[in-house]
């Protein structure tokens, strides 16, 4: 350590210079009280207000979010119920539709069968009529033609 010189030179440790302890103590106490008052009067009320306000807002937000979640769950439930009933309804409609189609088809098929039967009978009748007519014609023609054939064969 420096041992001599100007006023601004430390002799050993300035910390151990007890002559200015009264000065240091005085200013320290002033500073300490000032900081304490600042903290107690200005900082703490403001800080606590800010922090509790933030905590409250966060809690409210969480509560709100929980409410919304509950609502969403409920909505999902009703949605599922409605979907189920709609599916059931759709299935019913499909089934009745199929049944109707089947009914209609069998009806139509039997109708067509009847009609076909009728047509067959009619055509059978027609065929027999045509046959009779043809037979008659053959008879008349053969009656007409027979003498001629005989004449042609027998030389007279």
């Amino acid at each position: 350590m420096a041992s001599s010189g100007g006023k601004e030179e430390a002799v050993g440790m300035p910390q151990l210079d007890f002559s200015n302890f009264d000065n240091q103590s005085f200013w320290l106490v002033v500073f300490l009280v000032a900081v304490f008052v600042v903290i107690k009067v200005l900082v703490m009320p403001r800080m606590e207000a800010t922090l509790t306000n933030r905590r409250k807002i966060i809690e409210e937000d969480i509560q709100e979010a929980e409410e919304f979640r509950d609502k969403a769950v409920e909505i999902e439930k009703t949605l599922n119920l409605e979907l189920e009933s709609a599916r059931k309804k759709a299935n019913g409609i499909l089934r009745t539709g199929k049944d109707q189609i089947k009914e209609n088809m069998t009806e139509a098929l039997s109708d067509i069968d009847e009609k076909i039967d009728e047509m067959v009978q009619e055509s059978n009748k027609n065929i027999s009529k045509i046959k009779q007519k043809a037979d008659k014609e053959v008879q008349t023609l053969s009656k007409k033609l027979a003498p001629e054939i005989v004449r042609a064969i027998l030389p007279s």
């Binding site: 420096a2 030179e9 430390a10 050993g12 200015n20 000065n23 005085f26």
Partner: peptide
């Protein structure tokens, strides 16, 4: 003089260091 920085000296007056300086 590494310890010089710890010297307490009056700012606005010379000489004596009173308790209120």
């Amino acid at each position: 003089r590494p310890m010089d920085q710890f010297i307490i000296s009056p700012l606005f007056s010379e000489g004596e260091l009173n308790w209120y300086t």
